[in-house]
Structure formats: structure tokens, C-alpha cells
């Protein structure tokens, strides 16, 4: 019912930070997605973000976009993803949220989507193309089912608007580090720490920072001001190697990478 708030309450009490890896569902197949989710949690990830492949993801950079295209080309359907989540989430040992376009939620049916993921043990939703103005109906449906609806704040969000977003977000607030699309970056914006620091004083909600984070140096820099860090493209890129390399080797490489980032969390 309150898996994400409980998780962050526990982490805050233990003065620990969360690492939240992003994994594309169905790249290269759902069996491997389940294995990757289990591996990253075994290596210390506190929660997981499962990307539901979408044909037109405008917030995503080339790496995640290509993973969506591979999954869709492999005819990965939502029904099969829900089956995988139903088998994986209850035994994962960490909450999972779906990153999903509103196009998919609307087509599946707002209530039906929320019922379907809640019954599979999913803890929340991140909907990257649903700003707060368009989200009241989904927020209500999520609330009735105990799902967190995680809203995003970005560098282009005015401060008064950021406060409104924090009022409607549940679970945590997703702070987007850069104005732009997902993808690894060598440098993060200079004012990022100040902006996140300001937001932390405004809301009791946990703050997780995502977009562009890939290196242990990023993690060391940002961990003090955040409750959690989200790593997407750098994981997806490693998972994509499963197309050519033995799967146990790829799993180990993803796991080692996650362990390296978690070590940097401090």
C-alpha cells in the first residue's frame, strides 16, 4: 500500500540513499528483464524503474529510445509485460515503478492500467508526458489503489510551479537534472545542487535526481543533497549487450556497475 513512502522513511532513518536503476521491459526479452531486476536488487538497488516501451518517447535520448524500438520490434506487448511484473515484483524485495507514456495508459484505460499494475505488485507510476495540469484524474485513480504517482520537476520549472508539483506528487519527487532528454552526460549543471537544495527545504517528500547520471563522481556529488539517484541509459546500454554477449556475463557487468555506484553513494 505504501511501499515507496515506507522505503524512504526507512532509508532516512538509517541515513542511507537509494539507487534506482531503470530497465526497459522486454529488451531483449522479458525473461532477461526479470533477471536484470533481480540482479540490481541483489546488488543493493533500493527500488527499480521499469520502462514500458513506447513508439514515440519524446523525453528519451537515443539509448533508451533504441531499447524501446528493439522491444517493440520483438513484439513485446503490455499484457506480457504485466505477466512478467506479476511474477517478479512480489518476490523482488524492492518496490518497482513503471515509467509509462500517458498514450499507453489512456489506451489501456486509466482505471484498468492502475488496477493491472497494482495487482501485479507495482508500487507507483512515472508518466513523463503528463504535467500536473493533466494529471488529476490519474492521481485520483492511483491514490485509490495505493499507487504513488511520481511527478517531475525540471530546471525549467519555475519555483512556484515546483511547489505545486510537490503538493501533487506522491512517493517521491523526480528531479530532472538537466533541461533535455535522457542520456549519459559527462558534466551536470553547475546550479543543480543549489536548486535541489532549495527544493529539499520546501517539501517533506523524498527527492530523487535523474537524467544524465552515469558516473560514480556524479553519485558522490549528488548523494548528499538527494534521497536517491536514478540511472537509466548507462544501465540500458549495458543490458543491450545481451544481444551479442553471454547473458550471465551481461548480468554480472550490470550488477558490478550498480555495486560500483552504490559504493559511491556512501
Amino acid at each position: 500500500m505504501s511501499a515507496i513512502p515506507d522505503l524512504f522513511a526507512k532509508l532516512r532513518a538509517e541515513k542511507r540513499k537509494a539507487l534506482m536503476p531503470f530497465v526497459t521491459a522486454g529488451d531483449p526479452d522479458l525473461e532477461f528483464t526479470a533477471a536484470v531486476l533481480q540482479e540490481v536488487v541483489a546488488r543493493g538497488a533500493s527500488l527499480c524503474e521499469v520502462g514500458i516501451p513506447y513508439s514515440d518517447p519524446i523525453a528519451d535520448g537515443p539509448v533508451i529510445q533504441a531499447s524501446y524500438t528493439r522491444a517493440l520490434n520483438a513484439k513485446i506487448k503490455l499484457a506480457a509485460i504485466l505477466d512478467m511484473l506479476g511474477k517478479t515484483c512480489p518476490v523482488l524485495g524492492a518496490p518497482a515503478v513503471t515509467m509509462v507514456s500517458y498514450a499507453i495508459i489512456y489506451r489501456h484505460g486509466i482505471e484498468r492500467y492502475c488496477d493491472d499494475v497494482a495487482s501485479r505488485g507495482v508500487a507507483g507510476l512515472i508518466v513523463p508526458d503528463l504535467p500536473v495540469e493533466e494529471s488529476p484524474i490519474l492521481a485520483k485513480v492511483c491514490g485509490e489503489r495505493g499507487l504513488s504517482l511520481i511527478q517531475l520537476v525540471t530546471p525549467t520549472t519555475p519555483r512556484d510551479r515546483a511547489l505545486r508539483i510537490c503538493e501533487t506528487s506522491t512517493g517521491f519527487v523526480y528531479y530532472v537534472s538537466v533541461a533535455g532528454i535522457t542520456g549519459e552526460r559527462t558534466q551536470l549543471p553547475a546550479d543543480l545542487i543549489d536548486n535541489v537544495g532549495w527544493l529539499r527545504e520546501q517539501t517533506p517528500l523524498p527527492l530523487c535526481i535523474g537524467f544524465g547520471i552515469s558516473q560514480p563522481e556524479h553519485v558522490k556529488l549528488l548523494a548528499p543533497v538527494a534521497d536517491g539517484l536514478i540511472v537509466g541509459s548507462a544501465i540500458v546500454k549495458r543490458v543491450a549487450e545481451a544481444a551479442e554477449k553471454p547473458r550471465d556475463e551481461v548480468l554480472k557487468s550490470v550488477g558490478d556497475y550498480v555495486a560500483q555506484l552504490i559504493a559511491a553513494l556512501g
Partner: peptide, 20 residues
């Protein structure tokens, strides 16, 4: 004011674009 033509329209975009 929300860009609705009856039920249609609206603004389904990433937060990054909302201010613009």
C-alpha cells in the same frame, strides 16, 4: 484556457517544455 477543443487537445508533454 487549457487548450481543450471539447474533449480534445490539452498539453501532454514533458515538464521541461511546460514553461516555454
Amino acid at each position: 484556457a487549457q487548450g481543450r477543443f471539447g474533449d480534445f487537445g490539452g498539453r501532454y508533454v514533458p515538464e521541461t517544455l511546460v514553461r516555454a
